[in-house]
Amino acid sequence: MKIRYLPHTADIRMKIEGSSLEELFTAGVLGMGNILRDGFCDKNGPFMVKLKIELTAHDETCLLIDFLSEVLSNSYSEKAIFCEVKIFELTTTKIRAEIHGRQQAQGFDEEIKAVTYHEADVQKNNNRDWETLIIFDI
């Protein structure tokens, strides 16, 4: 799994890679958690806040963005940062998963307004790994 942050004039551009779709979705959650609070997801749990997410979308790109949007909304409503994903079912159009996180009473470092579809394109690269860019509206 690889997570890299690339330049963008006003927002945050993140590139994620994974050897499977499961790994790619997990990289997205981890990468977003570390934007909300620097290094938060690099530390070990315990991740006591657990929430189930079930979503459908018409392709894997929309599914990933919608999934991360759902994780982000829950971060704000639960005042928690999510770092782990337990995936029960994942196809190119459907996900059933449980996200695990920790409450962050001191607030976040960064306010992500939204996970955008702009530039997102889930594809296999030359190494046969899944990858995509994600732009976060800051």
Partner: peptide
């Protein structure tokens, strides 16, 4: 604040799904 961010997120998702019903294609999903 978060209320507005969520309204936009909710409706962009819905509108992406609804676009084919109106025969609309756009060069960028946003």
């Amino acid at each position: 604040r978060g209320l507005g961010h969520q309204v936009a997120t909710d409706y962009i998702r819905q509108i992406i799904s609804a676009m084919p019903n109106y025969g609309i294609e756009v060069p960028d999903r946003e």
